[in-house]
Amino acid sequence: MTRKTAMAASLPALDPVPEAQPKLVVRLGRGRTGGTTGLDWMVQRARVQGRDPIIADAARNPTLSRLYPGEALAPPSSDVVDVKAWLTSVLDRMLTERRSAVLDLGGGQDITLAEYVRDLDLLSFCQDVGVLPVAVYFLGPEADDFAHARAIWHEGYFNTPQTLLVLNEGVLKRGQNPAGAFQGIQANPDFIAWVEAGAVPIYMRSLAPLETMRELGLSFGAAMADRPGQGEQKLGPTRAWQVKSWNAALENEVREVGAWLP
């Protein structure tokens, strides 16, 4: 059994989602909590499984755009009017091409989404056009990480039944014990209430070779297979095993909610 809370274990079974239904996966919350790594993994996972989600990057620090140059869509500026018009173009493309999308609105752009929802009832829109909305919050162990996510939840403008709370061990400070780092957040009454309302907590382990993977330009698949990256350099079998282990653990964590992913 994975390290989810006891509350999650007692939740009723999740309703099945049609495989062909496009998903709008929106990353919300603070920056520097591992959201880019998580969304990158979702995109690569989808491609391995034969799907090609739209990559939409409106984060203040647009890392996805750097990982997918020429592929990721980005607004022309951070101006609210520009971002809102761009969001409409992303939704139009989803519907025209019947493709899922991952949308990075981390690092404060959630305020823009709140304004956008005032113009377009996004959840009702998704229901009417057959798109599954998914909210993903990446959380470090700091109280401020959860406070920011909780504030968005309390605002209620993107409170979809498909909500993931990703507890990311990769942002722990040196010396912090992963086993107890998130106990404070998990004991918070609002966290408990959120899970009881249907949010699914997921652990994302620390991936030690991640920085080296980025430097070598390696995908997760290439890293696991220990194929060469830029300059024909490889991770080596030990680091390749680390990536395999990390990937297997994350796959196990999303086993119940895999149909929510793009």
Rank of each mutant, 00 (worst) to 15 (best):
Q176G: 04
L73S: 11
D144Q: 14
G31T: 13
G38R: 07
R98D: 06
N168P: 04
Q49I: 03
V171Q: 06
G229F: 04
V134D: 03
L165M: 11
W153E: 12
L250E: 07
A20H: 14
A58G: 15
L39C: 06
W260F: 00
E142M: 09
M224S: 09
A259I: 09
L207Q: 05
L210Q: 12
V195H: 02
L218F: 06
I152F: 02
G258W: 03
V90Q: 02
M94V: 07
M224P: 03
W241L: 13
H148G: 04
V131C: 05
S100L: 08
R98G: 00
S245L: 13
L103K: 11
R3G: 15
N188G: 02
W86M: 11
A143M: 12
G175I: 13
T96N: 06
G175D: 10
Q176C: 06
R27K: 05
G229D: 09
T88R: 13
F182R: 03
M1W: 10
A56C: 14
V117Y: 00
I54H: 02
L67K: 13
F182E: 00
G156W: 06
V129H: 00
V26W: 05
F191V: 00
P237F: 10
S65Y: 00
P201Q: 04
R51M: 06
A72R: 07
F182N: 01
E115M: 09
G31K: 10
F146V: 12
Q109G: 00
T160R: 10
A193L: 10
Y203V: 08
W260H: 01
Q230F: 04
L123M: 14
A9G: 13
G35M: 04
V80T: 14
G236R: 07
V200G: 02
L103Q: 12
A147S: 11
R99V: 07
L164D: 04
S89P: 05
D226T: 06
V17A: 07
P228V: 02
A199F: 03
T63D: 12
R45W: 13
I202D: 01
N177L: 11
P53D: 03
L165Q: 08
K244P: 00
P201A: 08
S65M: 01
V26K: 04
A46L: 03
G156M: 12
V195Y: 01
P161D: 01
A248D: 15
F125C: 01
V43G: 00
W194E: 04
P76R: 15
R27F: 13
D104C: 05
L120G: 01
G140T: 13
E97L: 13
R27A: 14
Q230M: 10
N61H: 11
T160K: 01
W153R: 15
R51C: 01
E142K: 12
M42Y: 05
D104T: 10
P237R: 14
A187P: 02
